[in-house]
Design a protein around this nucleic acid. Sequence first.
DNA 1: ATTATTTTTTAGCCTAATCTAAATTTATTT
DNA 2: AAATAAATTTAGATTAGGCTAAAAAATAAT
Lengths: 228, 228
Amino acid sequence: MYLCISKTVRMTHSEENYLKTIYHLGNYGVQSVSTNAIAEQMETKASSVTDMVKKLAEKDLVNYKKYQGAKLTEVGKKIASTIVRKHRLWEVFLVENLNFSWDEVHDVAEQLEHIQSKKLIDQLDAFLNFPTHDPHGDPIPDKEGNFKKTDKILLSQMDHNTSCICVGVKDSSSDFLKYLDRNSIALGTEIVVISKESFDGSMMLQIDNCRKAISKEVSNNLYVKSVL
Amino acid sequence: MYLCISKTVRMTHSEENYLKTIYHLGNYGVQSVSTNAIAEQMETKASSVTDMVKKLAEKDLVNYKKYQGAKLTEVGKKIASTIVRKHRLWEVFLVENLNFSWDEVHDVAEQLEHIQSKKLIDQLDAFLNFPTHDPHGDPIPDKEGNFKKTDKILLSQMDHNTSCICVGVKDSSSDFLKYLDRNSIALGTEIVVISKESFDGSMMLQIDNCRKAISKEVSNNLYVKSVL
DNA sequence: ATTATTTTTTAGCCTAATCTAAATTTATTT
DNA sequence: AAATAAATTTAGATTAGGCTAAAAAATAAT
């Protein structure tokens, strides 16, 4: 039951970026993704997407029928997961070893994810001691593309008088991450939900014995794991 | 007396590779390099080189006059030295931290040298503890592009009954580096020249109390520093 | 000082990846 | 069900980088 990629597929950076986008938008490659969704995400034009998707279909990396969007094939999924794996491993390296903060890693990892070298990524994985999550709490696929999806929920879904631990972010924009830094919220931070306002969705939290009010936008972009 | 690059020049990988080649062939950018020399080194066609050199001249990265080759400008030299700096720092990282051997690093470093991030390279430099030489003994330019050129000579130029220390290689092909590995010759290895054969240029060496005969090809590609 | 040879440049073509604008298909509303 | 709107595709250009083949310039050899 192995997926064999006999002749290693030669991929351009652009092709890799498209696969990665389809992987992310299509829920790890299980769903079909529309041309427009890809175009919006990649900040390009729908016509460019059509062209590229045809090319990827030609290479059997996606299944594509006119007007019906694109869905990754097994091979496409494998390649996409490898790119994500590389991206997230590099993010760990940057934060753990090169003093990057979690809001600075994305652009550089975006470049590093395209470096081709099996040995490089295997050794990096070992050097980092086989991390399972990146600095934003996102899971790192293993060599086969598998990862355990964490049972995380949005902070906004927690009830009042409950406790949870921050396990990830939905929005990983620099602005949001810096906001979290300023408010001492990091991966692993324990958060107690004191109260929720129904009229604006804001919340009163307790973090390290300090009370903090946060907006709906914040609680809708922070993933937590409930603690009993 | 500083060189200010006000607006950061946006470089493609291809442009960077050309600059690097001109830097190397032109003796760190001091000499003019012919179109054919560039083409041969880069395994491309002379006509392609002409086109690219014109483009680089347009950007003021090289000085170019028809039929007279290309020479790096100060700005071009600075950019080229940065690429070489990145290449060599990555090589150190691969060998020191990711268990690569010195014959495996080149191809990967060739990709990594194009990653754009000032912070990345500064932090990597610090992480590696500011190395001055790469795994092949080549000097790593500092941020300003300066490096001390070591007073190395080819092993073939040593007299018999003299001692020296291996400080670098001229040929850094995988084959040659593996040969050196098999013969326990590495950077820092002490070598005693026992004798030289005038008819074929071969040498008898003593390394770690073992005698080894090497060909002229070998002694012509190994840099050493004489020890008194 | 002419040839001949080598080097370099020019001209024209090709592919990858993008774009705009127009055409077409699908989806949504009256 | 027809009309409108939205999404998608096609057609035709463009730009970067490369190639081939022919022309031009520089160098070498007779």
